[in-house]
């Protein structure tokens, strides 16, 4: 571990080569406890759970490929991945930021209650399942590319955005079973999707004034991380997916 002090921020550099996830997280904990404000992790090769129990707004820059459950249960850190993220990124996250300069795997943002995740390219299956919101807390997942099946299943809150930046002219998003059991939150798609790809609890609408404001803000933030022109992205048509019923299973039971 080497420490340098840049002006007023304390930067800690950690070489993760050959370090187990347990030891790596112990080092992170120690660095944060010692007041590190910025941490650079080099040579990360699949170590899991990075940032899991850190509850300070420390900045973590990851070079290499972090393993599963990056930032799970996380409560405040700001993580930037200079590469791809694997499965379970932001699992049950409470607060903080994850920016992935590449792809991310399955179940990204599962059950997240707060915080923001931005992914430059595509994400895998089961993204944003059971995302929920509460009071001020509203999780956000913005994806530059597209997603696989079961996107936003059981979604109970928060905002999910797929920008479809890599879709060819006339190509649709391919995810199926989108929003099955959805009973809260909203999904915005840039690019088309057919009714049959959606769960039966999901409605399609044109974004309204308020939606467009949210989109402007989120696409703006997305573009600032990855160097896109937000205005250009926003020129295209967006569709809004919303829960048709707040209580999709209300009429299921006999008392």
């Amino acid at each position: 571990m080497t420490e340098t002090t840049e002006a007023t921020t304390t930067v800690v550099k950690i070489d993760a080569a050959g370090v187990s996830h347990r030891d790596l997280n112990a080092k992170l904990r120690e660095a944060v406890a010692n007041g590190a404000q910025k941490i650079e992790l080099r040579n990360v090769h699949g170590q899991r759970y990075i940032g899991t129990d850190l509850n300070k707004p420390v900045e973590i820059d990851i070079f290499g490929t972090p393993g599963n459950d990056l930032g799970s249960f996380m409560d405040g850190p700001r993580i930037t991945v200079h590469g791809n993220a694997q499965d379970g990124c932001g699992n049950t996250m409470n607060n903080g930021l994850i920016v992935v300069h590449g792809h991310a795997g399955d179940i990204i943002g599962l059950s997240a209650r707060g915080g923001k995740i931005f992914v430059k390219d595509d994400i895998g299956y089961r993204a944003g399942i059971h995302m929920k919101e509460y009071g001020e807390k509203k999780p956000v997942l913005v994806v530059g590319g597209t997603a696989q099946d079961f996107l936003g299943e059981y979604m109970a809150g928060g905002i999910l955005v797929l920008l479809g930046l890599h879709l060819e002219e006339g190509q649709r998003h391919k995810a199926k079973f989108v929003g099955t059991g959805m009973h809260g939150g909203v999904i915005y798609l840039r690019g088309d999707i057919e009714q049959y790809q959606l769960g039966k609890e999901v409605g399609i609408a044109e974004p309204d004034e308020k939606d467009l404001q949210d989109l402007q803000r989120l696409v703006g933030e997305f573009s600032s991380y990855f160097g896109y022109d937000a205005g250009k992205i926003l020129e295209n048509r967006f569709v809004k997916l919303f829960p048709k019923y707040l209580r999709p299973y209300g009429r299921l039971y006999a008392y």
Binding site: G157, H183, G184
Partner: peptide, 11 residues
């Protein structure tokens, strides 16, 4: 930590 009056669905 969910809004009042919504069903709490555990998948």
């Amino acid at each position: 930590m969910i809004p009042e009056g919504t069903d709490a669905l555990s998948p």
